[in-house]
Design a protein around this nucleic acid. Structure first.
Lengths: 250, 250
DNA sequence: AAGTGTATTTTTGTATACAAAAAGGGGCGA
DNA sequence: TCGCCCCTTTTTGTATACAAAAATACACTT
């Protein structure tokens, strides 16, 4: 999937004067903008419900609305943003049933993949995973919640890639992104995403090729993460009336 | 070409609220166009490799290229069409490894869902499924291959919906669409998609709430479908050199 | 006659302009 | 003073215009 590295060594640095005009040809630029917005959402810099006005984004990234719309549409298909017909784009606020579905899907897919991962994993993969788990633990130790959440998602996504199945890896990637959103809405401040040494322990099982154990562990792990959420049907916590009566009356 | 004839058939009643398009407002119109193209691909009216030029589609559907591009982008994200940077859109030609991945994913997800479906299914659902299975068998009997393929995909998609998990249902929908493409490339003319009475038998298991049996049956069913394919790494049939040396580096 | 380089034509990529709809604000009337 | 309606402003939806790149055709050279 990393075809974007083909032209990384672009010899001619476009010496475009104006500070606004950035370099990089269109496709890569769009990809970068997509990732910037996506990351901001996953890291909870943009919270669910936040409005994403096309003009504002176009100005921030110095492109026209056309490109922004394309990116917004892609994010909408990945369920990270919600596109309301004449109302524009906003960061998706997952419903309780969506949260249930996402975690049920992760239970099925991520657990089902553990045996494959245990069979295919290489020592380098183990090293990478260990490093990711450590970075995540460090972030948690420093109470960098956003960073920890992102790293946790990245860990699970990496596991998906290690399955060797691109279709499933893509699906897992999407599920992990949505999980970040779910955490933003239903997350308990006291109980962060994937806590403790779960990820380290999981790598241990995988390293020893114990697929069945890894699967069971992942099952428990995901169950714990979901149980730590305060998933209530109605958001009684901080219901801003604008959302309910202004926009939500659809 | 005469571009001025875009709206020749437009009754043009700008009386009030000026309907944006002909019938149905913009969003529904786009949805209809999306479905038309999507169906054409799934039914093998548009074969893998077929070019989808924006201008041509825009003229056919009497909309501007803007809307077509949006639809094409969505189809690309669903992997039904491939968007090559300065080359435009074409119906995706699945590779052998993609075919493997898609069927492995279906094995995991569709089979894993059978217990849930068996638990949740209602008599009306059973009736619907039976009817779909019958329509498919009829189409097969009349050698309407395209129609049978589409109905088979619809059957599996319906099963996904019956799981009650929207996230998984969407994923299955995508996998089934891609399976149609795979069938178009690697399908054996003699051995059509889901043959015999498999679907009927499956409904029987589900109706009786035998989730485990349904799961095992689905496993065998998907294995048979995949086994009926002639998945070879290289397409020996019509290897156009443009594909191999021009684009096909991957 | 074959191959290569160039010009034309087609086709995509991007920005901008224009129109419709919704949100917000202010004025008018009761 | 409060409530309702209209007008302005903001924001999205769509089409079109223009530019860049690729495909194609053609001519010229060897």
């Amino acid at each position: 999937m990393d075809k974007l590295h083909d032209k990384e060594s672009q010899p001619s640095a476009p010496a475009r004067g104006g500070g606004a005009g950035k370099n990089g040809d269109g496709a890569e630029r769009h990809e970068a903008i997509y990732r910037a917005i996506s990351d901001a959402i996953i890291e909870h810099q943009l919270l669910p419900g936040a409005r994403l006005r096309e003009d504002a984004l176009a100005e921030v990234f110095s492109v026209s609305r056309t490109g922004i719309r394309k990116i917004l549409q892609r994010l909408a298909l990945e369920q990270l943003v919600t596109l309301t017909p004449r109302r524009g784009a906003s960061v998706t606020r997952p419903t309780a049933s969506e949260a249930r579905d996402v975690f049920a899907a992760r239970q099925l897919v991520e657990c089902g993949l553990m045996p494959d991962v245990a069979r295919r994993i290489t020592p380098e993969d183990v090293r990478d995973l260990r490093q990711m788990a450590r970075a995540e633990r460090d972030a948690l130790g420093r109470s960098e919640k956003s960073r920890a959440i992102k790293l946790s998602a990245a860990f699970h996504e990496r596991l998906g890639e290690l399955s060797g199945n691109a279709a499933l890896a893509g699906f897992i990637r999407q599920l992990c992104s949505r999980s970040s959103l779910i955490l933003a809405v239903y997350g308990n401040t006291g109980h962060l995403g994937c806590e403790s040494h779960d990820h380290d322990d999981l790598v241990g099982y995988l390293e020893r090729g114990e697929g069945t154990n890894a699967k069971a562990f992942m099952q428990r792990h995901l169950r714990e993460v979901e149980a730590s959420l305060a998933v209530v049907e109605e958001q009684a916590g901080a219901p801003d009336l604008h959302q309910i009566f202004g926009l939500g009356g659809h």
